[in-house]
């Protein structure tokens, strides 16, 4: 029994336990903390496999960025207001556990019976050392062979930013008859003044909630357009 095996056993046991914790905890904050633990152990396994760079990235990107984002979201929202999301009835949920167990067994069979490939590629440990290390090796392959995929990944990130802004920003059209001005909502001002053509929404919301009648506009300065309720309007 080598030390390697001991380390592997410790890291993977901790990873799986934390993973079970993510699934089992009732409170999302506890789940998030368990996920941090799980990811740190995943990073340790990466390092054991000679992928130091990915180990570091796993901690920086996942634990440092994505999970902090999740925690911020949990703090920002009122969890009781979220609609519950479920795939099926309790019976289906039980069935899914059974399916999971079968899947795990299947993967086990696949792992045992698969034919392992030898070290047929160019990036043996010695070669990677000669290239200057794991980071250099990844960089050389990623930015030459996979240059196009790299560019497209950057587009995916761009779309992510656009999407987060489009959906995450508070509504620009705040209230009828109201022009909202606040820091961070610079476009709220002049847009509102251009009254669009009158119409009725497909959802039967009264038209006056959509279009401002010309000539009766008030300007309201508010810091939080979402919390603001115009006098005379029923509160949201």
């Amino acid at each position: 029994m080598s030390w390697e095996l001991v380390f592997f056993a410790v890291f993977s046991a901790a990873m799986l336990l934390c993973g079970l914790g993510v699934v089992a905890f009732e409170n999302p904050v506890h789940s998030a903390v368990a996920l941090v633990g799980s990811f740190i152990n995943v990073a340790a396994l990466f390092v054991m496999l000679g992928a130091e760079f990915l180990g570091v990235l796993q901690i920086i990107v996942y634990t440092g960025a994505v999970l902090v984002l999740v925690l911020f979201t949990i703090m920002l929202i009122d969890p009781t207001k979220l609609p519950e999301f479920y795939v099926g009835a309790p019976l289906q949920r039980f069935a899914s556990v059974v399916v999971g167990a079968i899947l795990l067994a299947e993967i086990g069979v696949a792992i045992i019976t698969r034919t392992a490939l030898e070290q047929i590629g160019p990036h043996t440990e010695a070669m990677v050392q000669q290239m200057g290390g794991n980071v250099q090796a990844i960089g050389q392959v990623m930015l030459s062979e996979y240059a196009l995929a790299f560019e497209i990944a950057s587009l995916v990130l761009t779309v992510g930013v656009v999407g987060a802004v489009v959906i995450g920003l508070p509504n620009r059209m705040v209230e009828p008859n109201t022009v909202t001005m606040s820091l961070g909502h610079t476009r709220g001002s002049s847009d509102m003044l251009a009254a669009g053509p009158k119409f009725e929404s497909p959802m039967n919301i009264p038209a006056e909630r959509y279009t401002a009648p010309v000539g009766e506009r008030t300007v309201v300065m508010t810091k939080d357009p979402d919390a603001y309720t115009h006098p005379g309007e029923t509160s949201k």
């Binding site: 497209i152 587009l155 779309v159």
Partner: peptide, 16 residues
């Protein structure tokens, strides 16, 4: 890798 990244680009935009 291209299939994965391409399909994700199209999916993420469609989610939004």
């Amino acid at each position: 890798i291209m299939i994965y990244v391409g399909i994700e680009l199209s999916s993420v935009a469609t989610y939004i």
